[in-house]
Simulated scan of single mutants.
Amino acid sequence: MNNKEITIYDLAKQLNLSATTVSRGLRGYEAINKKTRLRIEQLATELGYQRNKFASNLRVQRTHTIGVIVPKLNSLFISSVLSGIEKIVNKANYNLIISQSFEKELKEKNNVQTMFNSRVDALIISLSTETEDFGHFDGFLKKKIPIILFDRVTDQIPSTKVVIDNFRAGYIATEHLIMQGYKDIVHITGSMTHSVYKDRFEGYRKALDQYGIAFDPSLMLSVELTEPALRTVLLNDVLKRDRRPDALFITNDSCAAIAQVILGEEGLSVPDDMAIVGFNNDLISRVTSPAITTIHYPGYEMGETIGELVIEQLTAEGGQVVNKTVILDSDLLVRSSSVRRNG
């Protein structure tokens, strides 16, 4: 059996074409006649030709890969963002290498180093809740490799940032509850070390102030956004208070849905006994009964924006690090979980 590696020159000889024409045909150059490209592709498939991407990338000092690090993959929001990114970068002949930090700073640091050693052409990342030191990005910054932060961002890394206006989102969610007549509004949120949750809290607090409701620190609960943590805080704290709160603003739709189940288990009705507003507009917010009022977080559109920005930086002259913030629109989607039925 002949195990000789098939090269472009073998294809060119059989097709009576130049090696340059074959190379461009395999890469889909439109300048090459469509029929000629088809002949090249058919012969390459027939003979088992494998393009040596590593060698060609070394010649242009590009791997045509983009690293993406996210806290966790089991999130509709993250999945939507990744889908939007991939749609755009694939059109520009880039592929994604995706990893997750599992909300651990050490894991994130290891992932960043792996991406750097893999010579990705750019890095896209949403920071873990634990991350407080940002020295692991120094290698990318020194080599002027583009970094794009999204959702969970920091001003300590010179980079492009893609976010929504979390302050406004927190404000309009709280304002809606106030306009419905709710006053004892518990805000359940994640770690305040990150601007995402900090800004939503500031929006919540501003809405209370604007409508003359004194801020009660005991109504602001920063917890891990998981079912066990939420169940603990509701059963051992919120529902045991002498004056039971009348609304929950939870910055995560999954937790908002879990809260709704817990309230039902305790014999409480949503929204009659307690209203709920979530965040993200995940599918679960639309299929619960009642459906959950939420902030629409445009994940797919965010992904497309990130993809366009990274390709723009990769194709720009000079390799200059771009330090800017792009803010996307978000809206309140009012559903039955927060609308008073007695008017």
Rank of each mutant, 00 (worst) to 15 (best):
V89N: 11
N90W: 00
A92D: 12
A92L: 02
N95G: 11
L96F: 07
I98Q: 02
S99N: 14
Q100S: 14
Q100H: 10
F102M: 11
E103D: 15
E105L: 06
L106Q: 14
K109D: 14
N111K: 01
V112K: 06
T114D: 11
T114M: 15
M115C: 10
F116K: 13
A122D: 07
L123G: 10
I125Y: 05
T129Y: 06
E132Y: 05
E132L: 10
G135Q: 14
G135R: 11
F137K: 03
D138H: 13
G139A: 14
G139M: 11
L141G: 02
K142P: 00
K144W: 01
I145G: 04
L149C: 13
F150N: 07
D151C: 01
D151G: 01
D151H: 05
T154K: 03
D155R: 13
Q156N: 12
Q156V: 04
Q156P: 00
Q156G: 00
P158C: 09
S159G: 09
S159R: 08
K161E: 07
V162G: 02
F167Y: 14
R168L: 12
R168G: 00
A169L: 03
A169G: 15
A169V: 06
Y171T: 08
H176E: 05
Q180V: 04
G181F: 08
K183M: 01
K183R: 15
K183Q: 15
D184V: 04
I185G: 11
I188T: 05
S191H: 10
M192K: 14
M192Y: 02
K198D: 11
D199S: 12
R200P: 11
Y204M: 03
R205A: 15
K206Y: 11
K206D: 11
L208N: 13
Y211R: 07
M220S: 14
M220K: 09
S222P: 12
E224H: 08
L225R: 01
L225N: 01
T226W: 08
P228I: 07
L230E: 04
D237T: 12
